[in-house]
Design a protein around this nucleic acid. Sequence first.
DNA 1: TTCCACTTACA
DNA 2: GTAAGTGGA
Length: 488
Amino acid sequence: MDASAIVLFQADLRLADNKALFFACKNSAPIIPVFIYSPEDEGAWAPGAASRWWLHHSLSSLKSSLAAAGANLVIRRGPFAESVNRILAESGARSVYCNQRFEPAARRLESEVEASLAKLGVDFHRYNSSLLFHPELVRTSDDQPYKVFTPYYNRVTRLKSEQPLPRNKRLNPASVSLDSLTVSDLDLLPRIAWDEGLMSVWTPGEAGAQKQLRKFLSEGLALYAAGRDRPDKELVSRMSPYLHFGEISAQTIWQEVVRISETTGGGESGSEKYLRELVWREFAYHLLYHFPDTAEQPLRQNFEHFPWRRDAGGLKAWQLGMTGYPIVDAGMRELWKTGWMHNRVRMIVASFLVKDLLIDWREGARWFWDTLVDADLANNTLGWQWTAGCGADAAPFFRVFNPVLQGEKFDPDGNYVRKWLPELAKLPATMIHKPWEMPADVLGRYGVTLGRDYPEPIVDHSFARQRALLALAEIKGDQPGKGRLKKV
DNA sequence: TTCCACTTACA
DNA sequence: GTAAGTGGA
């Protein structure tokens, strides 16, 4: 009988189109599916509270799917490398299969495991089962990594993407019985029950991912080109947490969307726009892979001396959705209640924190990291650096969003604001994005007194815009940062 | 070198 | 229209 193979589940909590699982089975060794929870190995970026909530439910789902296919998921606590070695010793397994992760801490960890397995003479099989395009394979004509989205997009869309693998219906589990923690032992759920809102909108797990994809493909995709910018509608995919935890693969989504655009022909612009968003995710990983310190440091070095303001009160108001700008506050409250925020609104609230309050983008990244169910180091880093103007894509000058105009443009009826700010629900659409412009007595007739029911704006936008442009001018003469071009 | 592109704001 | 910087072919 063949020695068994350990399949390490990490950010690939699925059975379908999972290369590590597929090839472990194909090589016909009995398998031992393992998940090791090891936040200490993630350094500064251990999963936040919302991610831990998601992980709890996702692991429960994975465990049941594996059980239904005949295999037990072995759950352990880290440290990661030590746990792998222990399971090898306990099981006598002769090979380890896993899908690569691309975050800096995960890459270091993987090298460590690779070295220790080599010493033991255990085969280590690694696959990219999460990105459409491996970051190493996409280069400019100068053999450099890309730093601007559009040329990156033009490059990768000429590459061929892989076909997803079929799912193994039955697994061949190893007969050894290993100790395992339960999912609850990992203590991932919040102590105080703040997770009701998350519970009511999300179904973590592979089945939930498939269901959400079906819904998006039938209801959102055709209207996606314009609909993606409308937080008041339900037209975006909401696939981000499923992608982050690998409950569905990007290849699967890509192929489904391409298939639809080929058969329908008509709804094509929606498909194209959505595939473009998937490429943004690829680009985020491309950047984090080639510039691994960008989660902590601006890609452009001249931003290292940017005059950020320390403003604990402003930060708190932003976090709680109490800035006095309705579109910003609605977004921050959606985030707090549901662990997610519409992408258009993410850009607006991020611009507000960074440009209007002049608060360091890393404060925003931290808050998002703790509160988003889709918190993803690559996407989060790209998003915040893009907004701050210190990352990929030039033109920081263009990026001071006007929260009133953004609200009026993308939430024209005010329904998104009404949903998350019930205190403003009665205001007419014409004023709901700028209640301070109404005379106090008129506002009072709608039951709103500013400063009592809803805050006055904590900063005047046109003043803040000027202040941000001055701050940007201060660092303009500095070196933009060729230093980071070197590959690490 | 030259030219294009850029999830935009304000006049 | 103009503000206006930078990467990429």
